[in-house]
């Protein structure tokens, strides 16, 4: 079914995409709601080079703050050693913003250090700890440059 495609449509589909399964999506949103008004943070690990976010790892926000997050340094090392042992990498690095939009802040951009990861931001500013939809957006952050990408939620990763 190849036919003429309008330039803007083509540009849209040529862009990067985060494909994530419903259960993983729900786990990230639940974590963000639970920790509101503090920022929640964690990763989704997957096999190296696969781009498959398979294993959610909730991390403690060592900063315990509504405006900042940081993985505890000892837990960070444990996490990475576990991933190296499993031949995994952080496919998704997520955190929440609790009073602002789900867009990377200057701090987020300056500290982003995994060029291969999808940086997911969830905003709980509308619903807080309550049920209801949240902003869930994903970005690549490479050398200070932010590129938003589509998020495709599937029932299960194929």
């Amino acid at each position: 079914m190849v036919g003429p495609v309008e330039p803007c449509a083509r540009a849209k589909y040529a862009g990067p995409v985060l494909t994530i399964d419903q259960a993983t999506y729900d786990a990230i949103v639940a974590h963000a709601k639970r920790d509101h008004p503090d920022e929640a943070c964690g990763i989704v690990a997957g096999p190296e080079g696969s781009d498959r976010p398979e294993r959610v790892v909730e991390m403690v926000n060592a900063a315990g703050s509504p405006t900042f997050y940081e993985f505890d340094s000892t837990e960070l090392l444990e996490l990475y050693k576990e991933m190296w042992d499993n031949d995994e990498e952080p496919v998704v690095i997520y955190h929440s913003h609790t009073a602002t939009e789900a867009y990377p802040s200057r701090t987020d951009i300056g500290l982003a250090s995994e060029p291969g990861a999808h940086y997911v931001l969830v905003s709980t500013r509308e619903q807080g700890n309550n049920d209801g939809p949240v902003e869930f957006r994903s970005y690549r952050i490479i050398d200070g440059e932010v590129t938003e990408e589509e998020v495709t939620v599937v029932p299960e990763l194929s």
Binding site: E70, F71, S105, L111, S113, E114
Partner: peptide, 12 residues
């Protein structure tokens, strides 16, 4: 020896 960048950020 292991070098790891912090995983950190936030709205601030």
């Amino acid at each position: 020896v292991v070098v790891l960048p912090a995983v950190a950020g936030g709205a601030a």
